[in-house]
Nucleic acid binder design. Structure first.
Lengths: 251, 251
DNA sequence: ATTAGTTGAACCAATCTAGGACCATTAAGG
DNA sequence: CCTTAATGGTCCTAGATTGGTTCAACTAAT
């Protein structure tokens, strides 16, 4: 079931009692259960405890924090509510939080193809919402980004930046803050992914022209409030990008 | 000299209150409740106290500011009127001003409805990929989460945690690291969103049973590699959640 | 003199904490 | 198998801490 403990039970306990508090913080924050909750939460989120690692026993934590066991239990109860730890009678309290890879790591784990797969899910919905919710200012911003990206027909870097701005303007036009927030994160990955290495091979002058044509088609569809057209445009755009990517992949 | 044993509550509190007056300003500005209000206000707005952090007790603040408790109370009363703090008898005075942390911010800006809209886009794709890519271990993890969540038919908290775990297992089964990464971020928001406040009204025993039925249907579909069925199941599940949410909204 | 603000004190009710006892479960070893 | 120790779960009581309230006295400005 669960992985065996590295130490025998008694040895483990003794070790816990001798060793200093793991978080090296002792009396920084408020001394209530809220403060203990905050300290442990931070420690877990920062990766001080790995996934499914066992926390010190409640009685040990009480000693370490200089609080009563009841107070520690209150803190652990909150952590359990946050789904950060799970507790088993007779066993202990275990971390139930897989630290997520940060932006750098996720960019390395994500292939350009997987990135486009995700964009192929998110962006059509952005387009749909944009048709419904975009206001004059949003359209203006998209138009500006469009003209910028169209002007960069022969410069890979310029096109790349402009393309990012245009799609971001699309995200903003959806008027869904969560969707925008998500797309910003996706964009971060996009900026770090290995796609950048192949940009020069993919972004020929011909393809840039084709992409820009699709950009304008998308903008026109949104400005004229044509949902079907907009979704077709963005979907076609991304599918073409995917096909171009796969074509280069084979070389 | 140094005590081998932890501090008692009294000593601990004294230590915390004696050590650093957080606003390094003490009696510079003109005494009076107005001056104290201004100093505390500035301290809170500058992020010296994080969200939901506890301020020193009134009696401690009185000492620190060299004023009487009544004066401090007047200052706190004004801060309360400004919606910067909230006070609870027996507990303390807590900051209610959300600094501009990213996650907190987006949680505040995102309505539960918008959250489901986004999930309605992401999760069907997760299901699709899960049908194609889930391995035995993924299915095992989903099944475990499923049994856990099914066992919590009458406890809102247990169901809530279990539901989160199940959907996270679904995300993992998609085998797309970027999608998983995205869903973890969505989950962060879900954890903070105002939905939590209405959980108790929405999650009746009847609805929990219905949700669990849909969970199992989804799992069965994925285990038997039926894409259409899986997408229908997850879509129906989220649409029902949205409808339930809107139903409560009207009350 | 009046007025508004401050002070210091005492007490109240709500809340939290310390500290302990006992239980059921789990894990390790005999 | 049984024994033993450790763990989380539960319940309790006494006491400490906190914000809420009231009141009489003091101060300074009008």
């Amino acid at each position: 079931m669960s992985k065996p403990h590295p130490l025998k039970r008694t040895e483990l306990t003794e070790a816990l009692n001798n060793v200093p508090v793991k978080p090296s913080i002792v009396a920084t924050n408020g001394g209530g259960s809220a403060g203990i909750t905050a300290q442990l939460r931070r420690e877990i989120l920062d990766g001080g405890y790995g996934y499914s690692e066992r926390l010190p026993a409640e009685r040990a934590l009480a000693l370490q924090f200089g609080a009563s066991r009841g107070t520690v239990r209150e803190a652990l109860r909150r952590l359990e509510k946050m789904n950060l730890v799970s507790r088993r009678v007779g066993s202990g309290t275990f971390v139930r939080y897989r630290g997520h890879a940060d932006d750098e790591d996720i960019a390395q784990l994500t292939s350009p193809l997987e990135l486009i797969d995700v964009r192929l899910v998110v962006e059509p919905q952005m387009a749909r919402l944009a048709v419904m919710n975009a206001n004059a200012q949003d359209l203006q911003r998209m138009l500006e980004a469009l003209t910028v990206v169209e002007r960069a027909q022969d410069n890979v870097e310029d096109f790349s930046r402009g393309d990012e701005t245009f799609h971001l303007a699309l995200a903003e036009s959806s008027r869904n803050p969560l969707l925008l927030w998500l797309y910003r994160h996706i964009n971060e990955v996009r900026r770090h992914t290995q796609w950048n290495a192949r940009k020069d091979k993919i972004l020929t002058a011909t393809r840039i022209a084709e992409y820009n044509q699709q950009h304008r088609e998308l903008y026109t569809a949104i400005a004229s409030r044509d949902i079907e057209h907009a979704v077709r445009a963005i979907t076609g755009h991304l599918e073409k990008a995917r096909d171009d990517l796969m074509g280069v992949e084979k070389e």
